Amino acid sequence: MSDGRQDAIARAWEEVVATARRTREEGLVVGTSGNVSARVGDIVLVTPTGVPYDRLGPGDAVGVDLEGRQVLGGLVPTSELPLHLAVYRGSGARAVVHTHAVHATAVSTLVPEVPLVHYAAALLGGPVRTAPYARYGTQELADHMLAALRDRTGCLLRNHGTVTYGDSLDEAYDRTAQLEWMCRVWLTASSVPGHSPTLLTPGQLRDVQEALEGYGQPG
């Protein structure tokens, strides 16, 4: 493996660990639940199963190929490896974040799709769907997730949590945070007796999506 390749893998692993720690610090996971991954060429770096994130260091990198064969490290990859690999095989994703965020998980038990309570839904490609329940770590769960992710960059997993992806770990994490916040807003508004939240129309959401195409700094 070339020095450049090794450096890229080392940097990506550092970002994976930092993002995993952030999910715990910001309350999106408890203990060692949830998992994070990043793709470097044909290698997927992924958090290991059952290891507290604060114990992970530069020498603990875990890598697999797109078929799930371990090619780097001695720790066992997360049990949700099929979920991560399904995203990479089915999209141009460079990073995936899976959490058990409280409000999003609560919403996953209530609705087949997150109500359009805020235009943040546009950041995930449209109304966020809830994938049907399947046991963690199974190909069935990965298949349900892929269907829910069609034309989206995030979804809920029923009675389980969230999955988002992006071109970077920062982008994937931001989408997770936006999804959790949007679910919290809907739950909060729905809890007021005698009132129902107003929702955006599909047309209003499309208007936001068009506006976002020119959003941000040039270059």
Rank of each mutant, 00 (worst) to 15 (best):
Ser196Thr: 11
Pro48Gly: 04
His100Gln: 09
His160Pro: 03
Ile43Thr: 07
Val76His: 11
Glu140Phe: 10
Asp174Lys: 15
Arg55Ser: 14
Val208Ser: 09
Val76Gln: 12
Gly154Tyr: 02
Tyr119Trp: 13
Leu66Ala: 14
Val40Phe: 01
Gln70Lys: 10
Tyr165Lys: 08
Pro218Ala: 12
Thr99Ile: 13
Val111Leu: 06
Gln70Thr: 05
Leu45Asn: 00
Leu199Arg: 01
Val46Ala: 02
Glu213Val: 11
Leu28Phe: 15
Glu213Tyr: 12
Glu14Phe: 11
Leu72Ser: 00
Arg21Gln: 15
His103Asp: 08
Glu180Phe: 05
Ala177Phe: 15
Val97Gln: 06
Leu75Thr: 08
Pro202Arg: 07
Gly194Lys: 02
Thr23Ala: 15
Thr32Asp: 10
Trp186Leu: 13
Arg158Asn: 07
Arg39Ser: 06
Glu15Ile: 08
Thr198Asp: 14
Pro52Gly: 12
Gln178Ala: 12
Ser108Pro: 01
Leu56Gln: 09
Leu156Asn: 00
Asp143Arg: 15
Arg135Phe: 12
Ala147Gly: 15
Thr19Asn: 14
Ile9Gly: 00
Val76Ala: 09
Ala122Arg: 04
Ala86Lys: 03
Ser37Thr: 04
Pro52Ser: 13
Leu141Lys: 12
Tyr173Asp: 13
Pro197Ile: 10
Met1Phe: 01
Arg22Glu: 14
Ile9Phe: 01
Leu56Asp: 09
Leu187Gln: 04
Glu26Asp: 13
Gln6Lys: 05
Val64His: 00
Ala12Thr: 03
Ser108Ile: 01
Gly126Met: 10
Leu123Arg: 10
Leu83Gly: 06
Gly4Phe: 00
Ala93Leu: 10
Cys183Pro: 03
Val128Lys: 06
Arg21Met: 11
Pro193Tyr: 05
Val97Thr: 07
Ser91Leu: 09
Val107Asn: 00
Asp151Thr: 10
Trp13Pro: 03
Leu56His: 10
Ala211Asp: 14
Met182Arg: 07
Pro82Ala: 08
Thr47Ile: 07
Pro193Cys: 04
Ala20Val: 09
Leu169Arg: 06
Asp170Tyr: 06
Val87Lys: 03
Ile43Glu: 00
Gly154Glu: 04
Pro77Lys: 02
Val117Gln: 08
Ala20Pro: 05
Gly74Ile: 01
Glu25His: 10
Glu210Ile: 15
Arg11Leu: 13
Arg5Glu: 01
Glu180Arg: 03
Glu14His: 13
Asn159His: 09
Ala18Glu: 13
Gln70Ala: 07
Thr47Phe: 03
Gly27Pro: 09
Thr47Asp: 03
Asp143Thr: 12
Gln70Phe: 10
Val185Ile: 12
Asp151Val: 08
His100Lys: 07
Ala12Lys: 01
Pro197Leu: 08
Thr78Gln: 01
Val107Gly: 00
His160Ser: 05
Tyr165Leu: 09
Pro218Lys: 14
Gly166Glu: 01
Arg5His: 00
Gly203Leu: 07
Thr138Trp: 12
Asp54Pro: 12
Thr201Val: 09
Asp167Ala: 13
Gly4Trp: 00
Leu28Ile: 15
Arg150Val: 14
Pro127Lys: 14
